[in-house]
C-alpha cells in the first residue's frame, strides 16, 4: 500500500509536469466553455472529452514508454510488481480527469452562472466509469503497439474522431445522419450519455452498464495482449 501510494503520487506529479496533459485536461476545456459563452449544455460532453484525452491521448504513450525505457523491467527487480505502476497510472489519470472536470464545472457555475449539475453523485460515478473505460482502451493500445511513438500516435488517431463522433466535443445532433450512426457503436458514446443524464438529474443505468462491460472486456484484452518487454 505504501508503495502504491508513492507510485500514484509520482504519477500525478509527472502528469502535472507535462504541459500538454495540463493544457488539454485543464485549459482547453475552459477555452471551449468561453467560446460557447458559458452555455452549460455541452459541458457533460466536455467531461467525457477530458477523460478521453487523458486515457487515450496520453496514457498509451506513457505506458509504452515505461516498457521501452525498461521502467517496467526495472520494477520487476524490486519487491513491487510492475502491475502496480500501471494501476498507479490509472488512478492518476482518473484523478486528473476528476480535477479537470471539477475545474470546468466550477467555472461554468461561478463565472457563467450555469445551474449546478442536478445529480452530483451520479455525475461523479459516470465520470469515473467513463475515465476508467477510456484508460482500459488506452491500455489495449499500449498492449498492441510496440513502441512509444506508435502507441502515442494511435491513441491520438483513435481519440480525436471518437470525441467528435461520440458527441463529446460537439453535440451529435449537429452531425449528419451517417456520422451520427457511427457514434452509436463508439465506446465513448455511453460515457457522454451517462454524463448528460446525470447532469440533468437521472442516474442512467444502461449506459453505465455498457461502460462497465467495456471496462471488463478492455482489461481482459489488454491483460491477454500486454507484453512487459
Amino acid at each position: 500500500m505504501k508503495a502504491f501510494t508513492a507510485l500514484t503520487v509520482t504519477e500525478l506529479r509527472l502528469l502535472s509536469r507535462d504541459p500538454a496533459s495540463l493544457f488539454f485536461t485543464m485549459a482547453f476545456p475552459l477555452m471551449l466553455l468561453v467560446l460557447k459563452r458559458g452555455e452549460s449544455a455541452p459541458v457533460p460532453g466536455y467531461l467525457a472529452m477530458i477523460a478521453a484525452i487523458g486515457g487515450m491521448g496520453a496514457l498509451p504513450g506513457i505506458v509504452a514508454a515505461y516498457r521501452e525505457r525498461k521502467v517496467l523491467k526495472r520494477l520487476a527487480t524490486t519487491p513491487v510488481s510492475p502491475l502496480l505502476l500501471l494501476g498507479a497510472q490509472l488512478v492518476a489519470q482518473v484523478t486528473a480527469a476528476l480535477a479537470g472536470s471539477t475545474l470546468l464545472v466550477a467555472a461554468a457555475i461561478v463565472i457563467f452562472g450555469a445551474k449546478a449539475p442536478a445529480n452530483v453523485p451520479a455525475l461523479a460515478v459516470a465520470l469515473v466509469l467513463c475515465s476508467v473505460m477510456v484508460c482500459a482502451l488506452g491500455f489495449v493500445i499500449a498492449a498492441i503497439m510496440r513502441n512509444t511513438r506508435g502507441a502515442g500516435l494511435i491513441g491520438m488517431l483513435v481519440m480525436f474522431p471518437m470525441i467528435f463522433l461520440a458527441g463529446a466535443a460537439v453535440p451529435r445532433k449537429a452531425l449528419p445522419d451517417s456520422l451520427r450512426q457511427i457514434g452509436d457503436f463508439l465506446p465513448l458514446t455511453p460515457g457522454v450519455d451517462a454524463l448528460t443524464s446525470a447532469w440533468a438529474g437521472t442516474a442512467a443505468f444502461f449506459p453505465m452498464l455498457i461502460l462497465s462491460g467495456i471496462i471488463v472486456a478492455g482489461t481482459a484484452l489488454a491483460t491477454a495482449l500486454f507484453r512487459w518487454e
Binding site: 508513492a6 509527472l14 515505461y66
Partner: peptide
C-alpha cells in the same frame, strides 16, 4: 539491480526517485 539500458521518466526528480524506490522495500 541496475539493468542494461533501463531509464526513468524524464520529469522525475532525483530525490523523488530515491524516495519512491525506498518505499518498495
Amino acid at each position: 539491480a541496475q539493468l542494461q539500458e533501463s531509464a526513468l521518466p524524464d520529469r522525475i526528480k532525483v530525490v523523488e526517485a530515491l524516495r519512491l524506490f525506498a518505499s518498495f522495500y
